[in-house]
Structure formats: C-alpha cells, structure tokens
Design a protein around this nucleic acid. Structure first.
Length: 885
RNA sequence: GGUCUGUUGGCUCAGUUGGUAGAGCACAUCGUUCACAUCGAUGGGGUCACUGGUUCGAGUCCAGUACAGACCACCA
C-alpha cells in the first residue's frame, strides 16, 4: 500500500499535478480499452488535427466534449475507445514546406519529388509529435497505443483499396471538366475548398462588332478571359438578336470570328441578353459550349499567367493582362461602359488567393449514387445531428452535390493508383504497381498527382481500425458511437465519412454527430492569427490549469453555437476548481485519515434533516447530470454540477455539518463524516469528465479510494436515500436562516453580535423548528431560540419577517425603526398578494383545473395555502407594529 | 436569391415536454472565528427586440416586422 499524505495545500496548484497524473494514466494503460465480447463499446474517433497545426482554442473546444463523453462512458464501465491521430493535410502541409524551402532559396522542383517527400516526412515527425504532445496537455484520455496517421501504411492501403473499388464500380472517373484552380498552390480544388469573398470590382461592358453593324454588347467581370472566348450566346426567344444566331461576331483585339449561338441558359431580362462564352474558364459557359460544340480555348497557365493562346499578352499576370485589355478596348472605342460592382469572388481556402475556373484533366468521384443512401439514413432517423437543425444543412449539400474533384497537383499525399501506358494509351487502376502494361506489355508510369486530403479522412472511422483487413478491432469497435466535430467541416468531413462508411462498410460510421461551434473573442470576432486576438490555450493552462480551461468550454455552452472566450471566464472556473479543492480539504481534515462507514449502512433515524436534504439533492444531481450527458447536453450537465457543488454542498451542507463535527457526540460525528464523504466522492466523480486532474488528485487523498478516479465507477442513484418531504422541511429552515441574515444585513447589525431568535411557527412546523436550534445558532447568529406557542403574545419591538415556515422576530432594541419595518413588510405583503391573486385566478379557472396535470394543480394549491398563511401573518404583524407607534 | 441562427439584468450566456425569469463577471454594503479573500453574507438591477395570434396561462408554440450573424448558390 503506497503511503498517502493527508495534508493538502491551501491552494490547488494544477501544474505539477497535470504532468504527473497524465503520465501515470497513460503509462498504466487506463486509456486503452479491453475488448469484451458481448459488451457494447463506446467509441469516438478523434478528428485528426493537421500535423502542421499548433494547438489553439478550436482544438480545445473540439477535444473537451470528446474527452467528457469518453471519461463518462469509461466510468459507466463500458469498453471505451477514443482513437487519436493526425492528418497529413496534403495541401496545408505542402504549402508550408514550400514556404520553408523558399526561405532557403529553393523550389520544390529544385529538390525533386523524392527529396521533397523526405523533407515532408521530417516535418511530420517533428510537428506531428508537437500537436499530440499538446493534446495530452488538455488531458485527453485517448488511446495513444492506437494512434494513427492518415498516411501510415495501413491507412494508405485503405485509401488505395477504396480508390480501386470505386473505380471498378465506375464511381471514380477521369476526365476534362471545369475545376477550381488555385494558381498559387498550383492545384485543383474541390468545390468545398473554395471560399467566396465579397470584393469590389467592375463590370465592363464590351462591344463585339457584329454583321451589318449589328454589334453585340456583352458584360464581364473578368475581361482577360475574353481572349479565350469561342462564342456569344443569346436567348433563342430574344427578338433583339433575330437573325443573328448562326452568324458570327468579331472578337476584338484577337480579331477572331466567333459564332452566335442560342441557348436557354441566357436570361432575357438580365443585362444586354448576350453572354460571351469562355468555355475553358467558366463552368456555365462550359455547359453551353458542350451543347453547341464550341471549342475550348485555355488562355491561362497553371501559375495564373497568360499562355500562348493569349497572343501578345502571353506571359502577363492575370491582373496585368486585365488592365492592358481594358486600356486597349478603350482605345479601340469598344469599351461601352464600366460600372462598379460588388460580387463574390472564389478564393482558395488555404492561401486565399483568387481561384480560376478552368478546364483540366482530373479525377472525380461520382457523387449522386453515393449521396442517395447517405440522405436516406438521415431521413429515416438512423443518423442524427445534434443540434438537429444541421440536418437541413446536410440535406442541402447532399442533395445539390456535384462530382467531387479528388486529384491534386501536389506531392505530399496519397499518390493516385492509376498507371498509364505510353505505348498504347491504356490506363490501369490497381492495388499494386503493374510495372508493365497488361495490354501491350509496354512500360507504365504512375499518375503524378495525389488525392484530396479529405479522401483519406473520409475513411477514418474504419481505416483506423485496420480495414480492409478484418481485424478484431474493426469487428468490435465499428461502427463508432458519436462523431464530434465543428459545424464548419460538415461538408468536408462528416458527410464524406457518412457516405464512405455506407459504401465500404455497409453501415453508418456513427449514428450521432455532435456539433460544436467556433471560438470567438470577447467581441465576437473569430479568433485569428492576423487579428492577434487568439487566446492561447497552452498559456491559459499554465496560468489557470487545464481543468479551468476545459470547464470554461463546457459550462453553459449549448451544442452547435459559437462561444466567446475570455480570460476572466477561465479565471472564474479556476476559482471553482479551488473551491472544490478546499471543500475536499475540509472534509479530509475531518476524517482523521479514516474511511467513514457507508451511508447506506447508517440507520435512517440517525440521519439529520440536513443529511436528508443534501442526500436528496445529491440524488437529484446525479440523475440530472447523467441524463444530460446521455442527451449530449454537456453544458447543462456542467452547470448542474457547478451549482450543486458550490451552492448546495459548500455553501450549506458543510456549514450545517460543523456543529456535529466539532461536537462531542461520536455517533453524530460519524454520520456527518459519512455523508460528507459520500457526497464529496459523488461530486468528484460527476465532475471528473470535465475536471480530470483536480478530481483525481483529490480522490487519491481520500481514504478508501481506488488507484484512480478515472477507472472508478460512476455514481448510482439509490432510492432509499431520497427524502423529498424531509428535504422540503429543511428548505423551510433554510428560508428562515436567510431571512435572519437578510434582516441583520439590512439593519447593519454587527456581525459578531448574537441575538435571540423568536419564531412563530406556522401550523405543522413546530417540531422541525425546535429540532433546528443548532442550525440557527450556527448559521443565523442565534444566541437562543424561543418558539411562540398558541396564545403567546406577539413580541413587541422586533425586526420581523414572514417565511413560509414561520414568522421571524429578532429583538434588536434600538436598531429597530418601526416605520421602516412597516414599509418593508408592506413590500412583502404586496408581493404575496400578487402571488395569491395569480394562484387564485389559476385555480378558479375551469380550463386550468380540467387540463393541467394533477400534480401541478396540487402544488399550486399548496403554494396558495402557504401564501395565505404568510399573508395573514404579515397583516397581523403590520397591525401590531402600527399600534406601537 | 435560398436556408438557418441569434435578439433575456451593465457584460457574457443558460433556461429540455408552455406553469410566479436564472448563473458567472461587474456593481453596492458588511465581514480576516478553526475549508477556501482564487472566500463568505446581504443587496440593487430585466415590460425576456417589436407586433399580432393560439392558450386558463407564452421567454418557451405560430405568423409577421426590425436589427445582427452564419452557411449555401452565385446570372454574365
């Protein structure tokens, strides 16, 4: 048995505790579940952070709910797996490495693919470790023995397998389509990777000279694309262009004749009713061009400069070319007008430069067949989003989904398993490099491109468990229980995991998606490096402790909504942690190093009213917290624990216990100790998912505790410890105590000065009040308790107040100012009258009596009864006082 | 253009089947006796954005208005 130290410091110092306990938890294997056949496991897959990432508040917000749920279910005794890992983050990482090379005066081409990848792996080793170390500092109880990386061998195998299967099912194809091209990252992007930004630009109206002087005016926000125009489209029913369809206009500057075509796509009402067609650089134009066999003419290079097709503009940047074209059109007198326009411009989600739509040969996933079952699962209710409103967001995306461009012109990522034969042009998609062409035997070369980073993330719930191999882990832990992610990645990630799970595994990867919001600063702005308004979670942990930070991300937060972070908030929960620490210290000091007897074995008649009250309230807290956690209402559960621990246990019960603890009655002392221990232990357990360090540290000080609270069992509700009626009596006593304090504070009575307390008990309360003398002495500065009996004369010059249980009188002699007393009592009187009127109105109402639930009618009746009693007391007291004047 | 969310005390936010409005911070007064000043006691402060409707009863349900915000689509 290891030696325990029962001396706790006066203040909780988290720093030392956090590293010590975390190391121990991990080393002892507490994070690693056992597979127990027949027992349903609880499983969460951690959204893998980017290897390039530095821990920020977003990670903390993401981690908190997962760890809370994991720790809760572990304490429920379920085999619990929270699987961590990191994401190679293809484009984000590659951009960073390219930047780093640039600082050395190198490009990635200088290095070559092989050397570049070596370098990337070095990055992975260095920074992938950094982020996982930082996650540990958040107290994350994930199973590091199962840590995965999206590019490790197993996951790579899964990626290739899925690619091949989808290809074989004709769900992956290669073709020329308009895609979003980032000229800075020099790669294709998926639709989801484009962010639209409102920008101020111009709409240029340009005259294209037509036949017989019938010129056509078109408008554009991107004049440089006119170099690639291969037609002009008008609506077939537009009288303005009668007789022109089939003829040509002259493309200015290039002096090319381009055809006029008729297409319904053109809106008669909008602008001039004529649209220039740049099929190689506009998705809509592309569609029209396909219908009319217009040629595609690319005028942009991959780096965003103009290519040879742009003639004399070749080599210019997009913007230079735009200015040159506008100038030349002006000189030619073909620029009809320029009007200012605000419109949304697509930008790259990584580098935020303007993306260019252009035609390119890329790989795509056919989405319709995959999206349909994914939609059905949500429609049938098998898949739930929390909060529910995001289901609509999900439908909206899934139902309007376009094919997913998955190839990226990058090096860091999963290389596309497609091989091309130069001799016969055959394409092979295979799990292994075929080396030679199966058709002609010629040499093959692998596709140069890699896959969208989200392609591998989409497989995360099963690839991490060993799929495509039929591993024991896969059989036991799939499907997972809850997916927790930010609502900003529903499209990128959640949706893709859902259809991938359905397609590859035949079942949903999880049935519930728990969404959280974004972290904002005090002013509601998104935290961003550029704004410098980020609160560094690591600094906050150093300053206030991990537990305080975690609690600040949980308490009072509702699912799916953004939260505002402030240091003050974290500080207030540091104070809460300290409060629990000191309450524990108090309990511990009173245990004399011994484990008290079990509350269940205490004869019920030995339990005092205060014991009955706190036990009842405690039972209720356990019920509420458990229910809230089951319903994924983490914010409500946290609030309940906070209130119960601080406002009921600390503020009241501990104080109520002190008389017994300092008294001579050994049996009474023992009972108080047992209840204190029982409830404190329960609080620590309820709080553990949120504040793992504090709770485990305190737990270990407590006699009779196990090796760690995190592997102990969640509190159980026991009906024999519910004393609802007794608890109500106690509340009545507490009301009196509050009343006395209130009176004294109002009259500025010296704190140390004790006074006689005279109580006129209301019917049925005599015994309770007589038995509560110690409570009044301890908490209501009472020197002596006097109970008025039937027929007793009401006390004269006293401060007085009426509570539901009794009329309170405190003889305070000179301090009592009778007119002021009357005034205050009248104020109470008015409140009670108002309340009585309300209840009477309600109870007189036949609608209420017939429709409202019976219990409610009953409580209303009781309340009314009580208030009438209070009213009577108030009235007679006021009358008495008025006679004294 | 479409969809969604928010509007509750000075500030930040809770409020789960509709039943006399809550917390933290801030503020005011008092307090260092043996858990805790990272504390305790007490107090002030809200027509729950506005208008109408349903209901015996609405912060809570419905409709509309105003303001704020998010996402999706992006007509040249």
């Amino acid at each position: 048995m290891e030696e325990r130290n029962f001396e706790m410091d006066k203040v909780f110092s988290p720093q030392e505790v956090e590293t010590r306990l975390y190391e121990e938890w991990e080393q002892k294997g507490y994070f690693t579940p056992e597979r127990v056949p027949g027992k349903k496991p609880f499983v969460i897959m951690m959204p893998p952070p980017n290897i390039t990432g530095q821990l920020h508040m977003g990670h903390a917000l993401d981690t908190m709910p997962q760890d809370v749920l994991t720790r809760y279910h572990r304490m429920l005794g379920e085999p619990t797996l929270w699987l961590p890992g990191t994401d190679h983050a293809s484009i984000a990482t590659e951009v960073k490495i390219v930047d780093a090379l640039k600082a050395e005066g190198l490009t990635k081409q200088d290095l070559g693919r092989e050397k570049f990848l070596e370098r990337a792996w070095e990055w992975k080793e260095e920074y992938g470790g950094r982020i996982t170390r930082q996650l540990r500092r958040l107290g994350a109880s994930c199973d590091w023995t199962r840590e995965r990386f999206t590019m490790d061998a197993g996951l790579n195998k899964a990626v290739v397998e899925v690619f091949v299967r989808l290809y074989e099912k004709d769900l992956i194809y290669r073709g020329d389509r308009i895609i979003n091209w980032c000229p800075v990252c020099k790669t294709a992007l998926s639709d989801a990777e484009v962010e639209y930004e409102e920008q101020q630009t111009s709409l240029w109206h340009i005259k294209y000279p037509g036949p017989d002087g019938r010129d056509i005016i078109v408008a554009t926000t991107r004049p440089e694309t006119m170099l690639g125009d291969t037609g002009v489209a008008v609506n077939p029913n537009d009288p303005r262009y009668d007789g022109l369809v089939g003829k040509t206009v002259t493309l200015p500057i290039m002096n090319r004749e381009i055809p006029i075509v008729a297409d319904d796509y053109v809106d008669l009402e909008f602008g001039t009713g004529a649209v220039k067609m740049t099929p190689a650089h506009d998705p809509n134009d592309f569609e029209v061009a396909m219908r009319h066999n217009l040629p595609l003419l690319r005028v942009l290079n991959d780096d965003g400069t103009m290519n040879e097709a742009a003639g004399k503009f070749a080599g210019m940047t997009r913007m230079d070319c735009r200015r040159a074209i506008v100038k030349e059109l002006e000189e030619l007198g073909l620029l009809v007008k320029t009007e200012p326009l605000t419109h949304n411009v697509g930008t790259c989600y990584r580098c935020h430069d303007t993306v260019e739509p252009l035609v390119s040969t890329q790989w795509f996933v056919k989405m319709k067949p995959l999206a349909e079952p994914a939609i059905d699962k949500a429609k049938s209710g098998e898949l739930k989003f929390v909060p529910e409103r995001f289901t609509k967001t999900y439908y909206n995306w899934m139902e309007n989904i376009r094919d997913w461009c998955i190839s990226r012109q990058l090096w860091w990522g999963h290389r596309i398993p497609a091989y091309y034969c130069d001799s016969c042009g055959h394409t092979v998609v295979a799990r292994e490099n075929p080396e030679t062409c199966p058709k002609c035997g010629g040499a093959v070369r692998q596709d140069e491109d890699v896959l969208d980073t989200w392609f591998s993330s989409a497989l995360w719930p099963f690839s991490t468990l060993g799929w495509p191999d039929e591993t024991e882990d896969l059989k036991y832990f799939y499907p997972t229980s809850v997916m927790s992610s930010g609502y900003d990645i529903i499209f990128f990630w959640d949706a893709r995991m859902i259809f991938s799970g359905l397609e590859q595994m035949g079942s949903l990867p999880f049935d519930t998606v728990l969404l959280h919001g974004l972290v904002r600063d005090e002013q509601g702005r998104k935290m961003a490096k550029s704004l410098g308004n980020g609160i560094d979670p690591l600094i906050m942990i150093d300053k206030y402790g991990c537990d305080a930070l975690r609690f600040s991300l949980a308490m009072g937060v509702s699912p799916g909504s953004d939260i505002r972070m402030s240091e003050e908030k974290i500080e207030s929960f540091r104070n809460f942690a300290n409060k629990i620490w000191n309450a524990s210290r108090f309990v511990l000091m009173n245990l004399d190093g011994e484990q008290p007897i079990d509350v269940l074995s205490i004869p019920k008649d030995q339990l005092e009213p205060s014991d009955r009250w706190i036990l009842t309230r405690y039972q209720q807290a356990v019920r509420t917290v458990s229910q809230n956690l089951d319903a994924l209402d983490l914010g409500l559960a946290a609030q309940k624990i906070y209130e119960f621990a601080w406002n009921e246990f600390c503020d009241w019960y501990i104080e109520l216990c002190k008389t017994r603890l300092n008294g001579e009655d050994a049996q009474a002392k023992g009972v108080a100790r047992a209840v204190l221990y029982h409830v404190l232990m329960g609080i620590l357990k309820l709080l553990h998912p949120y504040m793992p360090f504090l709770t485990d540290e305190v737990y270990r000080y407590l006699p009779g505790s196990g090796p760690s609270i995190m592997i102990d069992r969640w509190p159980v509700v026991d009906e024999t410890l519910d004393f609802v009626a007794d608890a109500e009596r106690m509340e009545g006593v507490m009301d009196i105590i509050r009343g006395v304090r209130n009176l004294r504070a109002e009259m500025n009575v010296q704190p140390g000065k004790r006074a006689t307390l005279i109580l006129g008990a209301h019917p049925g309360w005599e015994d309770t009040l007589a038995a509560s003398e110690n409570y009044f002495k301890r908490l209501a500065f009472t020197s002596q308790l006097e109970l008025l009996h039937e027929g007793d004369k009401a006390p004269g010059k006293c401060a007085s107040m009426v509570t539901p249980a009794a009329d309170i009188f405190i003889p305070l002699g000179e301090l009592v100012d009778i007119p002021k007393e009357v005034q205050r009592l009248n104020k109470d009187l008015q409140n009670v009258q108002r309340e009585i009127a309300r209840a009477e109105g309600m109870l007189k109402n036949p609608g209420f009596l017939s429709k409202a639930p019976e219990t409610l009618v009953q409580t209303e009746k009781e309340k009314l009864e009580t208030n009438r009693q209070v009213l009577t007391s108030l009235e007679s007291r006021i009358k008495e006082l008025e006679q004294l004047v």
